[in-house]
Design a protein around this nucleic acid. Sequence first.
DNA 1: TTGATTGCAAATGCTTTGCAGCCGC
DNA 2: GCGGCTGCAAAGCATTTGCAATCAA
Lengths: 146, 146
Amino acid sequence: MRTTNELDETLKAAGYRVTRPRRRVWTALQETNGHITVEELAERVGDDVDLASVYRTLRLFETLGIARTSRFDERDPGRWEPSHPDEHFHLVCRECGEVDHHVGDLVARIRAHLDEGHGFLVEDVTLTVHGLCASCRGGTTEPNAD
Amino acid sequence: MRTTNELDETLKAAGYRVTRPRRRVWTALQETNGHITVEELAERVGDDVDLASVYRTLRLFETLGIARTSRFDERDPGRWEPSHPDEHFHLVCRECGEVDHHVGDLVARIRAHLDEGHGFLVEDVTLTVHGLCASCRGGTTEPNAD
DNA sequence: TTGATTGCAAATGCTTTGCAGCCGC
DNA sequence: GCGGCTGCAAAGCATTTGCAATCAA
């Protein structure tokens, strides 16, 4: 899901109208490719789209399954990203704030593990790892430094 | 960390004063043993402790490392729990809202896995699983029902 | 045309903050 | 007594909502 055409189809298929604000928000979200604040997004979209519409549009995208929101720090505003078919998790650096979108089989393995033992039916796994990214680890980045 | 005596020591050791609001919040948090809203907590604490003080106290407890906050749904207020020495994760049921505090080695294994390959220094792992708990899985709880 | 969608402005809800008085040490 | 802590009230900030006008179908 990358082009505005694909957005148009998704909207129509679900019975929603294709509008300029929706296209604009969609494009802006694609351009940044993730972890962006509603305010930052609104800035990119431009002043002729109201902040409230950006919020409404993002909520709609979430309902449609094409965007997702998450919060990496309790005291930060929510951040949005186009939803990604791959299961992934986030590595958040406490120093530089960088968010690494990490794709791998880890989430799938967690899911598999949970499906076994417990009576709990897993629908969504959210994994966030806080720490220090390679560049912020005190200069040295040698992989086998203790 | 369970008694008010232990709270007192923790506060003093860090140079903070032992006060009635702090003891009250601490006790209330222990009693519920987790995943409680600030408002619910304030209710238990009583009207003679101001809501603002409850917020301030919880933030202090967080700083001291004896309480932690998390949000299971983007649109819910934050929830607090006494911080737990064991690494654990949360199973949140979308039907009944029940939050299961799940202790196990899964988080440790995730941590170990991350420590290997990547240059990222892991400090905190947050894992939240949304889905349906055993009792909400459509009545039937047989493990091999389709 | 017609009703979904928008912009605007006001409201909401959670959380924080300024400040004068109070209380732990 | 001093300075940290509290209650109170007001502010802050992200997000939502009511409503009349607008625009996609």
